[in-house]
Design a protein around this nucleic acid. Structure first.
Length: 592
DNA sequence: GTAGGGTTAG
């Protein structure tokens, strides 16, 4: 070995060990300076190490500035360096970096470097994280086949993940999954997670059960995915079952697992169980705090939510924009107008966080619920961004509840012009008309809807019974299996009336006579679910229901009566929040 | 040196 070669070798070794000691970005920058001084800017070994170090310190731009520098010689790069680069860029949460990963793959091919079995998992991960995975994903799949790596277990598992990140891609994901001669825990977790991502939580739970039958042992990642499904479904029994499963199977209680558990319990109605998980967590991230605050907000426990936020600040955790959504919605659900205002102002002044439309939406809701419709309107006019349909719908509900019918009507007309195919907008307008007793206008709406083929989203309520999740859909055909359920709804109606209940007919969309309207109300999904629970469950046990829409005025009133007449606690999670019905009253204090 | 996972207005 000649002298200059051994000198270069020594420099290379020095830098590699220097990079090993880099545990902060300033140290990384020092190493970068040494690297340039020693002329190692084209050394693939050093550049690879530098890339993976800068990636683990979330400072990939340092590495990119080196690789893109005019001094570097990309012709020296090997497959290993490209793999490292693609992996590091795929790992980033910035879409532009994910895209860069994909372009490095092309560059690699242009330089006639062969991808190996490690390349495709990295590439597919980048594609999954980048915008429009459905465009590049199938091409990458074809490339994996061409280079004979498509049968590799790691590649297939990442294919499942990639396809399930494409909208509607769970079919393709399932095809890959079903075609695998051998699967492992990652394949199952990826598929279960894919179902959750597509909003198919029931399928996710079903696949989890299949996984257990097949003898593949779930791990902490599987459990996190199943817990998200659980949170989505509001399946408390399943949530509790998973909790004991984790204990029994000694599945490591990682931070994401505890966060998922805490979030699922809160979203399934066991907020105190969620708080217990939170208190016992050995370490917490901002996600843990946010889940607790959101959970308390959903249960109308705004004071406690705000207290938790203050505790978080005392603990030295820096708030982000997401946690403020929880704080503001807590204030709104608990009628804490002044606090809400203060927190909103503090976002920018104290924490330098620019409010987004979601935060403004919380403020509009805060004023609206408190009956301050004018302030809500003024707030909308002073927002730095233009209002979106969510904001308009919040305002319209406020107009309806607080009797500002003309304003409500004019806003709804604008909204209908923006979103003519959105069924819930017509429902809102129809309800405004019903309150102002303009029946002819109301029936006009119905005609427009049927003419244009605009459909209402059907109401759907979920209820767990005997370890199964039962689904009730509003206006479902009278199924023979549920004959007794419909009879029970009729009987409930009679009993409630004796107790003083008067059906609220104004929200029925159909242009039919009063008696038929009452029948239509009887078919609302939560009434079916409650009737089922009254028939099947032991006296005085709590009834828990999760539904997809907001509770309608009639079901809200009826459920209050049911809780008293039948002596049951009834917990309903609707689109927005929890309602705890007990002894004729609701925890939302009729504010929802 | 490889894959799957946690919070987000109404």
């Amino acid at each position: 070995m000649n002298k200059s070669n051994s000198k270069r070798r020594a420099a290379e070794q020095y830098l590699l060990s220097l990079l090993d000691t880099c545990d902060s970005i300033p140290k990384l920058h020092q190493a970068q300076a040494h690297l340039l001084k020693l002329g190692l800017h084209s050394n693939p070994l050093v550049l690879t190490k530098f890339t993976s170090t800068s990636s683990s310190l979330s400072s990939l731009s340092s590495s990119l500035s080196l690789l893109f520098s005019p001094f570097s010689s990309p012709h020296l790069y090997d497959s290993f360096l490209f793999n490292t680069l693609i992996r590091s860029l795929a790992h980033s949460s910035l879409p532009s970096f994910n895209l860069l990963a994909i372009s490095y793959f092309s560059l690699m091919l242009r330089r006639r470097l062969l991808p190996n079995k490690f390349t495709f998992p990295f590439l597919l991960k980048a594609i999954a994280a980048a915008p429009s995975p459905h465009l590049l994903g199938p091409q990458a799949h074809a490339a994996a086949i061409k280079f004979t790596f498509a049968d590799d277990l790691f590649v297939r598992n990442t294919l499942i993940h990639m396809y399930s990140c494409c909208s509607g891609g769970f079919h393709s994901a399932r095809k890959v999954f079903d075609g695998m001669p051998k699967t492992n825990v990652v394949s199952w977790s990826a598929m279960i997670g894919g179902y959750v991502r597509s909003g198919l939580s029931n399928e996710a739970v079903a696949l989890f059960r299949e996984m257990q039958v097949s003898g593949v042992r779930p791990d902490e990642v599987t459990v996190v995915a199943v817990l998200s499904a659980c949170a989505d479904l509001g399946a408390l029994e399943l949530g509790h079952w998973i909790k004991s499963f984790v204990e029994r199977e000694r599945i490591p209680k990682t931070l994401p697992l505890c966060n998922a558990l805490l979030d699922a319990l809160a979203k399934c109605g066991d907020i105190d169980g969620a708080l217990k998980v939170f208190v016992e967590m050995p370490e917490r991230s901002i996600v843990s705090w946010t889940s607790v605050i959101d959970g308390l907000a959903m249960h109308g426990r705004g004071r406690e939510a705000v207290a938790v936020f203050e505790e978080m600040r005392t603990a030295g955790v820096v708030p982000d924009d997401v946690v403020f959504i929880g704080v503001l919605s807590a204030c709104s659900h608990a009628g804490m107008v002044d606090e809400g205002r203060r927190y909103f102002t503090s976002m920018k002044s104290e924490f330098g966080i620019e409010p987004k439309i979601e935060h403004c939406g919380c403020m509009v809701d805060l004023f609206s619920r408190a009956g301050m419709v004018e302030q809500a309107m003024e707030f909308v006019q002073s927002m730095p961004m233009s209002p979106n349909p969510v904001i308009w719908r919040t305002l319209i509900s406020a107009c309806r509840v607080h009797g500002k019918l003309e304003l409500g009507e004019s806003i709804t007309r604008n909204l209908l012009a923006d979103e003519p195919m959105h069924g819930s907008n017509y429902v809102l307008l129809s309800n405004v008309y019903a309150l102002s007793r303009r029946w002819e206008k109301k029936s006009e709406i119905r005609k427009v809807m049927s003419k244009q083929g605009i459909k209402k989203v059907p109401g759907c309520s979920l209820l767990e019974f005997n370890g199964e999740i039962h689904e009730f859909i509003a206006g479902d055909e009278l199924h023979s299996k549920y004959r007794d359920v419909f009879d029970m709804v009729e009987e409930m109606g009679r009993k409630l009336k004796l107790a003083g209940y008067v059906p609220v007919l104004s929200e029925v969309l159909l242009d039919i006579d009063e008696e038929d309207k009452e029948d239509a109300l009887h078919q609302h999904s939560e009434k079916l679910a409650i009737a089922f629970a009254l028939l099947k469950t032991a006296p005085r046990t709590t009834i828990r229901i999760a539904k997809n829409l907001r509770v309608c005025a009639d079901c809200h009133l009826a459920t209050k009566f049911i809780s008293k007449v039948y002596d049951r606690d009834i917990v309903v999670r609707d689109r927005n929040r929890f309602h705890h019905f007990r002894d004729g009253l609701c925890s939302c204090r009729d504010f929802w």
